[in-house]
Every structure is written in C-alpha cells, then in structure tokens.
Computed example of a mutant assay.
Amino acid sequence: MKLKFKKKRTENYKKHIGQVPGTLVYTGKKSDKALHIESFDYSKDEIEETVLLKAEDAIPFKDTDSVTWINVNGLHYVEEIERIGSQYDLHPLVLEDIVNTTQRPKIDEYEDYLFVVLKMLYYDEQEQIVIEQVSFVLGKNYVLTFQEAEGDVFDSIRDRLRHGKGRIRGQKSDYLMYALIDAVVDNYFSIIETLGNKIEDLETQLFAGDAENDVSSEIQELKREILKVRRAIFPLREVISRVEKIEHHLIYKRTITYYRDIYDHLIQVSENIDIYREMIWSLMDMYMTTISNRMNEVMKVLTIISSIFIPLTFLAGIYGMNFEYIPELTYRYGYFVLLGVMVLIFIGLLIYFKRRKWL
C-alpha cells in the first residue's frame, strides 16, 4: 500500500534541497503584511520608543551605552533581515536559521553574541493553536528579536519598559532576553490550562454519557494539539539548561538565577503535558469502552427479545403446519388455549430474566 503525503508537509523542506549553506530561504507561509520594525532604546532614567522604516535605521543602536531591543516582524522580508544581519555581523547560518521557521529550539554561542530560537504559542480566533518561531540575538547592549508577523506575547514587557516597572530598565541586555523568554514561557501555562479544560470537559461528557458522535474526532484533535505543544516546548528545556551552565561574558551571574526560574517553569509545563497526554489516551480508551458498553446493551436487549420469541415461534410453527390431521386443530377453544400458553410463557420468561437480573 502506497502512502500519500500531503504536499504541505514536504514543500518547506524541498526549498533547502541543493542550497548553499547560509542561503536565506523563508520556509513559512506566504504573507503580504508589511515589514514592521520597532525599537526600545532605554536606560534606567529614560526610554525612546521608535518605529524603524528600514533595516539601515537599526545601525546606530549597535554600539550605544544604553540597552536596545529591536523587534523585527516579517521573516518573509529576507533581504531586509540580511541587511540587519550584516550590520550586526551575524553569521550566515544564523540568518538562515532565523528565516527557517521549522527550526528546532536551540542556542548557539558566538564570540560577540548568543543566538536562541524558541517557539511562541497562542490560540487564534478559531481556537486553533498557532506555533510561531521567535529568534533572539543577544549582544553586549542589545537584543534582536525576529518574528513571522505582528502580534505576540510581549505587551507586558513593552508596558514595563515604557513605565519603568520592575527592574528591567536597570539591568543589562541579558536580563531583557530573560524577560522576553519568560513572557513566552508564561504564556505556555495559558495554553496548557486551555488544553486541560478541554480534556476535563470531554471526560465529563464521557462519564455522563452525553458524548456526541464526533467525540472521537475531538479526542484525536486534542491528541494532535498535545503533540504539537510537546514538540515545541520540550527542546526549550535543553536550551535554558545550557544558558544556566554557560560561561559567556554576555550572561552575568546575577541573571542565572532568573533563567533557572524559567527552567523550573518549563519542567512544570512538561509534567502537565505528560499528564494530559496520558489523559488523552485514557479518554480514547474510555470512549471505546463506552461504545462497547452501548453495543453490549443493544445486544442484550436483542438477545432477550429473541429468547422470548423463540418458544412462541416454535408453538406458532407447529400449529401452522399444513398437516391434515392435527388433533388440537379441531378443538373449539384451541386458539385461545394456545394464546394463553404463549402469554404464560412470555410472562414466565420475563420473571425468570428479572430474577437473574438480566433485565
């Protein structure tokens, strides 16, 4: 039997076949949205928020004494990303990984910067999980982030920067990257909570016997969502673990504790994912058991009906034969006697089945 694979599963990988290493090929969905670059240049006492019109506008922020966060939305603008990469001396393989949206979460160490890739998860308007790749470049006084499109989980970070909340404005760029990654990880809990609610609702329906006919497809959809979330989150534990143990001049010791807190959160999320994964399998088993029980109940009723009508059919068959001489056929009240016997057999079988608790 030949398996048929959907085109969308392989077309992204085909784009890289035969390409020279370091060639920038965007592997995400085509988009017509405009490139959007925003920057937050700040110190403890002041902040400047700017929307950059082109990649060249990011050059002045590279060597400033203040900390700068440059957020690039629009990975399909490969040429602009390549210009930013050349301005910040990013390795061609780093730029290739930025636009490759199928990249596994990872961390790469370079002399002047760190490169981190992770997955940002959120629900869209159709209640479908969206997995978007976010890339981080941590430099001496800057953090570059690259996203597929506008819309993210960083609004709380923007608010803290604008209003000087917390300690973010008084820390270095490594703390800024921690805050951004922490916002992504915190949103994982929202995803996990929603998945947990869906599983509990299905479990309640199955226990109450109110499950609809398409409950099996709902269970399969939940299983796919759990696997997608697991695939996106689990590798990040390794990334954060490496950040904890890394000996790089851009990661200060005082910040390691915060990254360790992210790791603890990831462990908690991973444990919940494993629990929900087991619950999904249990739901499928429970659904199959429910279907089997319903079938057994139907077969039980049909068997009882058949058992009741077997002796009645037997009597009707005997006296329905076309023999000329059947003594009972000449009896005046034979028909009523036969009906009475049938009724007694019917009642007797009902009583018997009731006593045996088959009814």
Rank of each mutant, 00 (worst) to 15 (best):
R9Y: 12
F234C: 07
E238L: 06
D201F: 09
S135G: 04
F154T: 05
N71S: 14
E127P: 01
K54R: 02
L53K: 15
I326K: 05
I37P: 07
G340E: 08
Q171F: 12
L95C: 14
S307W: 04
L206F: 15
S241T: 11
T194H: 15
D182A: 12
L95A: 05
K198D: 15
I17T: 08
T101K: 03
V343M: 13
I326V: 13
V137Q: 10
S39T: 07
V243W: 11
V239N: 10
I280D: 09
K8T: 03
F115W: 11
L302W: 06
L75G: 07
L195E: 13
M295V: 06
E127F: 01
K30W: 08
D264E: 12
I310P: 07
L118F: 06
F346K: 00
H249I: 04
I318R: 11
Y42G: 11
K228C: 03
V153G: 12
D63I: 02
F314T: 09
R230K: 15
R230P: 14
V20P: 00
T102L: 03
G164I: 10
L53W: 07
Y319L: 06
A211Q: 14
D45C: 00
K33C: 05
G22T: 01
I267D: 05
L90S: 14
G170T: 15
Q220Y: 15
D186P: 14
S31Y: 00
G340W: 13
I291C: 09
L3P: 07
K33Q: 02
P92K: 07
F207T: 15
V94F: 14
S270Y: 11
F189N: 13
P327Y: 00
S43F: 00
E96H: 13
T313R: 01
L283A: 02
L161D: 12
I98Y: 09
L161G: 04
I251T: 05
T50W: 00
E247Q: 04
V143M: 08
I291G: 10
T64Q: 10
D214Q: 15
L206S: 12
R224P: 08
T23D: 03
L53G: 13
Y263G: 12
F40I: 02
K29S: 01
S135T: 04
S217G: 10
L283D: 08
D182H: 11
E109C: 04
G166K: 15
S282M: 04
I347Q: 02
V341N: 06
D174W: 09
N12M: 01
P311N: 04
E56P: 10
D264Y: 12
L349V: 05
H76P: 15
Y352P: 03
